[in-house]
């Protein structure tokens, strides 16, 4: 849905009607990078709102700024301008410690390259995210086992990432993203390193898990078929989001 009234001409897609605060509100986000040829504008006024439990996909060509947008939405990077709000909490301009604390509680990440810690077992990779969020190990371990069971990897809980296939690694990463019961999962090309069939399986699992947990999902992908599974499928091109 195009919001013609926005001052920067950005696109806002309205979430489904809900009495709850949106889990994510981005207003007029701007980002550019310095290059030898001058500033390269990547995001030019992105406005996006994601409601509780909503699934939003963002598709775009390589280099369109999808990952940069996701990192800014997740507080891993700072926008040059605009405003970001998580669950009604304004996070723009807040210090890293504050952002890290909120990130561990409210956000879950799934990366293209899985990013599992190679020295930890599948179970330990999942519990690590819980421990970082401040949960005691004894409390988080049953929850981690439950999640590993739901992604079909409980029997491989003691295996290291090197002993798992790409699809299995990504399923561990899904469990890790959900261990702290986040309100929003940000998935950056979660099937990008997988073959079509495995990727489809991981995608099904991601959608099923986020839906059953009532967790909102922002999926960044260049796969049109996966993107179209979202009720709201957006396209990032020339620094702007379009429906």
């Amino acid at each position: 849905m195009l919001d013609e009234n926005l001052p920067d001409g950005g696109i806002a897609v309205a979430p489904p009607p809900s009495s709850e605060l949106p889990v994510l509100s981005a207003m007029a986000l701007v980002k550019s990078f310095k290059t030898p040829r001058g500033a390269l504008s990547v995001l030019e006024g992105i406005t996006l709102e994601v409601a509780v439990g909503e699934f939003v996909s963002i598709r775009g060509a390589s280099g369109s700024g999808k990952t940069t947008l996701l990192q800014i939405l997740g507080g891993l990077d700072q926008a040059d301008g605009g405003e970001l709000v998580w669950n009604g909490e304004r996070v723009t301009g807040r210090d890293n410690a504050f952002l890290a604390k909120l990130r561990s509680r409210w956000l879950g990440y799934v990366f293209q390259a899985y990013h599992l810690v190679p020295e930890l077992t599948a179970l330990e990779n999942v519990t690590l995210a819980g421990r970082i969020a401040g949960h005691p190990l004894c409390e988080i371990t049953p929850a981690a086992c439950d999640l590993l069971e739901r992604v079909g990897l409980l029997s491989r809980a003691g295996h290291l990432p090197a002993q798992l296939s790409g699809g299995e690694c990504q399923r561990v990463a899904l469990a890790r993203a959900l261990i702290n019961k986040p309100r929003l999962v940000l998935a950056d090309e979660p099937t990008g390193n997988l073959d079509e069939r495995t990727g489809a399986g991981v995608m099904d699992m991601l959608l099923e898990l986020t839906r059953s947990e009532g967790v909102a999902l922002v999926l960044v992908t260049h796969n049109e078929a996966f993107a179209q599974r979202a009720p709201r499928a957006l396209v990032l091109a020339n620094g702007r989001l379009t429906a």
């Binding site: 997740g74 990130r103 561990s104 509680r105 990440y109 990013h115 810690v117 969020a133």
Partner: peptide, 16 residues
Amino acid sequence: TREIGLLGALGAQSRQ
């Protein structure tokens, strides 16, 4: 470096 970024993304504080 990659793991440092990952820990940050998971919410690890700089002091941790």
